[in-house]
Amino acid sequence: MDPATEPIKAVKLRHPVRTAFAVVIVLLVALFVWDAATREAYQWPLVGQYLLDRRISQAAGVTLALTVLAMILAIVMGLVLAVMRLSDNPVLKAVSWFYLWLFRGTPVYVQLVFWGLLGTIYRSVTIGIPFTSVEFFTVSPFSAIDLFWLAVLGLAFNEAAYMAEIVRGGILSVPRGQDEAARALGMSWRQTMLRIVVPQSMRVIIPPTGNEVISMLKTTSLVTALGFSLELYARTRAISAQIYATVPLLIVASIWYLLVTSILMVGQYYLERYYGRGVAPQRAPENDPDVADAAGVDPTTGLSGDEIEAVAPPKREHQ
């Protein structure tokens, strides 16, 4: 081999401090695990017994259903609110602003208590002409709604305010030239939004939305505030009250929450990959020699896919 292109053979730089830290951490973790395994208070046999209890796995299913349904509704509402906020119509702008002010400005727990009380506050609603005796019909709007759906609504209405801001950030991240190009082609505002701007904003919207989904999974544990008690946390609390064992059932609940979170993270990975098409670094089509130098550079921003990932808004917790 030509000596100039021969790979370098060198002694690797050593990191003694790094190695020492790793040893200490491994030792500490081992100590903690050994202690936990033998400590009476954890009551591991009970954890094993209740981990696959039917009531608990069903409750985990209810929690997942609450999460998914509330998020779907919140994403749709958030999209509408964000588009309203960015529209030229001052009425829509104001409505969207007020919604955000109200639902971001009050704790989700307080909101859920209110949702639970709606049936008491609006026992009956009469539709008629004000200040006259004309009445068309009277309904009890909230008595008919199942507690499960009330919980979905309560969670979704709060979350929509946060989703609106995430969607708005995503829409604003799409270069102006995209909007201009679409309008110059004669596309309407609606077509431009739905077919050009929103699909491109998904790349920026999805990472923080994944964060919101995981956050929502945990927020579902608050819906006892409106009287719904069939989700994971309330169920495990109820069982632990029956058998006078708190810690093992908390561990059971934690394991289930972690399991569901892990499943959701896998889903997020595939969604991000789908919406990254055309921008994220991809394998160039084969037998295509003249793409090499242009591959992966976004013409509108001049950034490569990697750089775009890097400037996406940081993930955040809002609770």
Partner: peptide, 26 residues
């Protein structure tokens, strides 16, 4: 109305300095 303006624009082609192709489409 915006719809009428769109109809007028549909008959006028425009090419931009920064191309402005839609990156999420082939």
């Amino acid at each position: 109305s915006p719809a009428e303006v769109s109809r007028q624009r549909a008959d006028i082609g425009m090419v931009f300095q920064s191309f402005n192709l839609f990156p999420h489409m082939t």
